[in-house]
């Protein structure tokens, strides 16, 4: 049984982010609503950390966004965020000419508490993360 562990409904939290516009806060990236988004407010890299409610195994990251050019994903197993392992090295995403990007990354996170997205570059100066889904299951 696989759940979207990032969703606020399932206890996911987006507390740490390098950009903050109160109209488009990081919570908008995990609220399950595609029409809302977290926006970056200038310069790269930008980071967003999704904290899971419990140690979990995650097999897929699904990302809906606008304008991201290069992204990497990192996982931290400890309750207090510390050292992160790279689970997706820096990867380029196609432009989509300003329309929405929809990406699925197969990853291997065996026991993860925090998932960090690093946006290394954008196709424009400001980019949006509409929805992050982390497919996996909580460990017992």
């Amino acid at each position: 049984m696989s759940d979207n562990l990032a969703s606020a409904e399932n206890g996911g939290q987006a507390l740490i982010a390098t950009s903050w516009d109160q109209a488009h806060p990081p919570e908008h990236a995990i609220d399950g609503d595609d029409a809302t988004f977290w926006v970056t407010t200038g310069m790269f890299p930008q980071e967003l950390v999704v904290t899971l409610p419990a140690s979990s195994a995650v097999a897929r990251v699904m990302l809906r966004s606008v304008g991201i050019r290069r992204i990497s994903i990192h996982a931290c197993p400890t309750e207090q965020p510390g050292a992160y392992d790279t689970v997706l090295p820096e990867t380029e995403i196609a432009d989509g000419a300003g329309s929405r990007q929809s990406e699925v990354f197969t990853v291997k996170m065996e026991a993860v508490r925090h998932v960090k997205l690093v946006i290394h570059a954008g196709w424009d100066h400001f980019v949006a993360v509409n929805d992050i889904r982390l497919d996996g299951r909580k460990l017992d």
Partner: peptide, 12 residues
Amino acid sequence: YTDSLAKLTAAV
């Protein structure tokens, strides 16, 4: 930024 926000909102 204001212009980008309008485009990002329109995209979704």
